[in-house]
């Protein structure tokens, strides 16, 4: 929900980033206020996941120019875990499998770390078990997933649900969901979107990276951005996604009137 008076959570200006010497982000600008939902769309390879990883602090990516502020604080000095504790959450496009680490142990340690940071109560394994099972109901997840290794052997859709479960536990202030919708069946998409909507409120913000309008039918964005070659080249309201679905990305270059809707 747009409210020009609400606090700026994320402020990115002229962000350039490289990986293994190759410049992938070439001047990204985006501002996200609390309460807002943003969607980022764009062709394969345009830099959406790179932006997500830079935001979360992946050590392989180097910021070479520009600013990256979260809640007024310069993120570039923070380690990934410090960003997480500050309230940034990335739902991975390709969640990592970690054989040998039980999902329940992983979830509990993550939860307690963030709780500790917020000066709130940590939960012992028994208390946590009750707590996490409640959250799993929200996502209609089978509790059996608690006893398995983190993401190991999970199907594509199961991994995505496990990401949203983590989001539900950690209650981030800014969540970036990188193609959480791909790999979900139609029912799962609705369940996950419902879950995300329930977590969304006026004090947090959401960035959805997606290729499809489908997700945006359930989680309605305030802004839609188009990324191309490492930059955000268009920003508009939710109707932009609809137009892209109908006309394709080429259409952007031939149609300039949408830019007029820029806030």
């Amino acid at each position: 929900m747009i409210n020009a008076n609400s606090k700026i959570l994320l402020e990115v200006h002229d962000l350039h980033a490289t990986v293994s010497g190759a410049e992938i982000l070439k001047g990204v600008d985006i501002t996200v206020r609390s309460g807002e939902i943003h969607a980022i769309m764009g062709l394969n390879g345009s830099g959406k996941s790179t932006f997500a990883k830079v935001l979360a602090g992946h050590p392989s990516y180097e910021v070479t120019r520009g600013t990256l502020l979260f809640d007024g604080q310069d993120l570039s000095a923070l380690a990934p875990e410090e960003r997480a504790r500050a309230g940034i959450f990335l739902a991975f496009q390709y969640p990592v499998e970690i054989p040998g680490v039980a999902n329940n142990q992983f979830l509990r340690l993550a939860y307690n770390t963030v709780q500790g940071q917020r000066g709130e109560e940590e939960l012992d394994p028994l208390e946590f078990d009750d707590f996490v099972r409640e959250k799993m109901k929200l996502l209609k997840m089978n509790p059996d997933f608690l006893d398995r290794s983190v993401n190991e052997g999970f199907s594509g859709g199961e991994k995505k649900r496990n990401e949203i479960l983590q989001m539900a536990l950690l209650e981030p202030r800014l969540a970036l969901l990188d193609e959480t919708d791909s790999g979900l069946d139609i029912d799962a998409l609705r369940i996950v979107a419902n879950g995300v909507n329930q977590l969304s409120n006026k004090d947090n913000a959401l960035i959805l990276v997606t290729h499809y309008q489908r997700l945006l039918d359930y989680i309605v964005p305030d802004y839609v951005h188009v990324m191309e070659a490492g930059r955000i080249i268009r920003t508009s309201g939710k109707e932009l996604a609809q137009a892209l679905e109908t006309h394709g990305y080429d259409w952007i270059h031939t149609n300039e009137q949408i830019t007029g809707a820029l806030p």
């Binding site: 504790r85 990335l90 990592v96 770390t113 950690l170």
Partner: peptide, 13 residues
């Protein structure tokens, strides 16, 4: 490295 980053992105030191 990717596993390490995944855990760190969830708040693990």
């Amino acid at each position: 490295k990717e596993s390490l980053f995944y855990l760190q992105s969830r708040g693990f030191a």
